[in-house]
Nucleic acid binder design. Structure first.
Lengths: 218, 218
DNA sequence: ATTATCTTTTAGGTATACCAAAATTAATAA
DNA sequence: TTATTAATTTTGGTATACCTAAAAGATAAT
């Protein structure tokens, strides 16, 4: 199996299993990887042979220790590059993901660690996602989705889980940048729309958008 | 044909045809690409179909305008990355080539132009090879191989055509760094060994090594 | 000009990473 | 529990990028 293929599978499995439960469903994987479910079945069998995942047919998939280690290192590369592109090379928040998708496959630890050092070994990328350290350790935090926030509480925007250009532009428009302070003014019971105050301005957030916003309790 | 495969073929054809004549021999290509001559034949047929080369069987291969354009852009990416790795990220002269081999395939003009700007749009990479500008133009120069140098003349070391670690270490040992002033003291008729003076020290260079050293007439 | 040598091409074959369609298995609803 | 629906896997097949070994073509040497 090509190294890049392995990496894309493991990274995607990692991303899917960190959000939801620890077991990944084939169809989601097929979706994220933009390949057919049939191909996913085939790929998972190979990854199982390579001992990167435990794959039980018609049940689900889970990363092994080795698989998680590799996945974490890809995630690290991706997020370090995103941060470097944004902070050092002046790329926009909405541009870095796409380029990092390619850069993440360059395998040279010295390079990544160099970039990390230059950046001051950051623990979060420009999207607010945590960056694993060289050993694969991730800074734990009390982050929640904005959709889980409580009325009349204060939060700080720390990241997003949707990296689409449309969504990032929406955030930008309302000055919802990483680190922005947010006060939840009210939650509409009917459709879970959230009204919040950011920079003294009122912004209405759909439940769909709130699902994608990671905030920290202040 | 995969984009990376196309790029590796074109880059290699470019490198081979700039040194010698404009027509490339299959076996050399096979060698540089580390694949069999049979595979080269196959690859060239595809590149011909794609209109990147003119390939006439049992005769040779030459880049088309489109092929040369693509080749130049890969060469640019490669050399910009090498320069960036060396100058901005502190990598050694002997380390950058290998990493750039991977980085050169990341296709994002904005990224390369950004790096180029940061570097001050250099016209030569850390090996002394010319860097094509964004339009593919290469700075012409009166560079020659050291093996073509004349006795009692003065030169400046501008680059190398062999990027092996062994060779680069050899150069380093004798302080033969890019920009070093060289005086050719004598050329041994018997085996074309060159004796030169660099930093007031005498260094003997084999004809093989001299073949790989690019110097500028001073 | 003919042989010997070296290069290139053809022929036939492998492994990878995909696919669509059919068959199976699991989940859900009646 | 059985039928319906949905997810997964199997089957059979494609294209790419390689390979080795044999055949054909070009080059050089006698």
């Amino acid at each position: 199996m090509r190294q890049e293929t392995v990496e894309n599978y493991l990274k995607t499995i990692y991303n899917l299993s960190s959000n939801n439960s620890a077991v990944v469903v084939n169809q989601q994987l097929a979706n994220k990887l933009s390949i057919s479910p049939a191909s996913v079945t085939e790929g998972l069998r190979k990854l199982h042979e390579l001992k990167y995942v435990v794959y039980e047919k018609s049940y689900g998939t889970r990363l092994t220790t080795a698989g998680a280690k590799l996945a974490l290192s890809i995630v690290r590369r991706h997020r370090i590059w995103e941060t470097y592109l944004a902070k050092e090379l002046g790329f926009g928040w909405d541009e870095v993901h796409e380029i990092a998708e390619e850069l993440e496959h360059i395998k040279n630890d010295k390079l990544i660690n160099k970039l990390s050092t230059i950046l001051g070994n950051p623990m979060f990328d420009p999207h607010g996602d945590p960056i694993p350290d060289a050993k694969g350790k991730i800074k734990k935090s009390n982050f929640i989705k904005l959709s889980e926030a409580k009325t009349k509480s204060n939060y700080k925007l720390m990241g997003v889980t949707d990296h689409s250009v449309a969504f990032l532009k929406f955030l930008e428009k309302h000055q919802l940048i990483i680190g922005a302070n947010i006060e939840v003014k009210g939650i509409e019971e009917f459709d879970n729309t959230i009204v919040l105050i950011c920079n003294k301005k009122e912004v209405t957030i759909s439940s769909k958008a709130a699902e994608c916003m990671i905030v920290e309790t202040v």
